[in-house]
Design a protein around this nucleic acid. Structure first.
Length: 351
DNA sequence: AAGCGACGCAACCGCCGAGAC
DNA sequence: TGTCTCGGCGGTTGCGTCGCT
């Protein structure tokens, strides 16, 4: 019954609304979340053709003005925010709908490699497309496409994290095994506490490093570094990797691992004779096979093992937080796929 | 034909910055 | 300076559709 009424409304409206809006109305009434009750009694959920008609009529006659005041003036039982969203993402007459062209797709890919998830900024370069539409297109199509091509959708560079993460995975497996064996009961609690601290510090460093260097962030980083050094001083056996300390401020921080975790895990035992990798396929630089050796050797070994985060940390994408020029500059380290594959002219526009 | 999972996308949520007071 | 309002933005949700078994 309700469906029949909606359908009727759809057919009647189809004679009155601009041609651009008609394809939109075909999709009623199914999309979006199910309505839920609001404390103020305002309606939520999918918009009906009647509501759209009211909103369009009002804005075409009076402009939107104050979005907060609009619903009452237009006779809508919606919040202003909902009206604004509906207008900007759906009803605006200049919205271009339908499939994205190859050109649009390439533009999105290139702009995303430069700007990151700045959908509104990307949308400004694609007339008629909304940020929401571009975001959806990215999440449902382009992102998957890049992943299938073996390209990290956030960095736009070939993914290497799995192989680079192998030593870390192996280390974690060993850590688990060691804790279960409880060979060093007294150390376990302390170690776990330190692991939490180290993880926190790593996270803070990653966040700080993703911000463009300036006096404030530099001092913060120095403070963090000092903090990390203090941890290692309190626990000399948990030496920190020089690369971790030196890399504050570079995007490579996100690829470091709390080395005090690694080292305390592997070497606190009286007889550290731990075979961390029996996999012959792992390259020599990634092998974690350590038998005895001096502490200097052990330290060197670990400091040279650069490890990525196991999760896809969007925060580590410099393009999410820093300026375009910084991103382009960082892209000179190694060419991103878009620099190789896509239109050079467009790339130059953003350099 | 029915069941089921993946997909697509409109709409909501929560946060943030700008501006007014 | 602090608070409030408003608009904008990015992330997430949830439901209908589609395609496969």
């Amino acid at each position: 019954m309700q469906q029949a009424q909606t359908l009727r409304g759809r057919l009647i409206l189809s004679h009155h609304l601009p041609a651009l809006v008609l394809p939109v109305l075909i999709q009623y009434p199914s999309m979006g979340r199910s309505p839920c009750c609001d404390e103020k009694g305002l309606k939520k959920g999918p918009w009906t053709p009647e509501e759209d008609h009211k909103l369009m009529n009002y804005i075409q006659k009076h402009g939107h003005g104050s979005w907060r005041a609009l619903p009452e003036l237009a006779g809508l039982n919606r919040c202003g925010k909902s009206c604004r969203l509906r207008w900007t993402n759906y009803l605006r007459p200049d919205i271009k709908r339908g499939k994205f062209s190859k050109d649009e797709e390439q533009t999105i890919l290139q702009l995303h490699s430069i700007l990151g998830n700045k959908w509104s900024a990307i949308a400004k370069n694609l007339p008629g497309r909304t940020d929401n539409e571009i975001k959806n297109f990215w999440n449902t199509h382009l992102r998957k496409k890049l992943i299938q091509m073996g390209i990290d959708p956030m960095t736009h560079r070939p993914r290497t994290d799995f192989f680079a993460a192998l030593p870390q995975l192996i280390a974690l497996a060993n850590l688990h095994q060691l804790i279960e064996q409880q060979q060093w009961d007294g150390h376990t609690t302390m170690l776990q506490t330190e692991m939490v601290h180290a993880a926190n510090h790593q996270y803070m460093l990653q966040s700080a490093a993703s911000i463009a260097p300036n006096p404030t962030t530099t001092s913060s980083l120095n403070s963090l570094t000092t903090d990390l050094e203090q941890i290692s001083l309190l626990n000399p056996q948990h030496m920190l990797s020089p690369t971790l300390l030196e890399s504050t401020g570079s995007e490579d921080v996100s690829r470091q691992v709390p080395h005090n975790i690694m080292q305390s895990t592997f070497f606190d035992q009286p007889d550290s004779n731990i075979n961390l990798s029996s996999d012959k396929n792992v390259s020599s630089s990634e092998q974690c096979h350590v038998e005895g050796g001096s502490s200097r050797q052990k330290s060197l070994f670990l400091s040279e093992t650069s490890l990525p985060p196991l999760t896809d940390m969007s925060a580590s994408n410099p393009c999410n937080v820093i300026s375009t020029s910084k991103c382009v500059a960082s892209s000179t380290l190694s060419p991103s796929w878009s620099e190789i594959l896509l239109d050079e002219e467009l790339m130059r526009e953003f350099e």
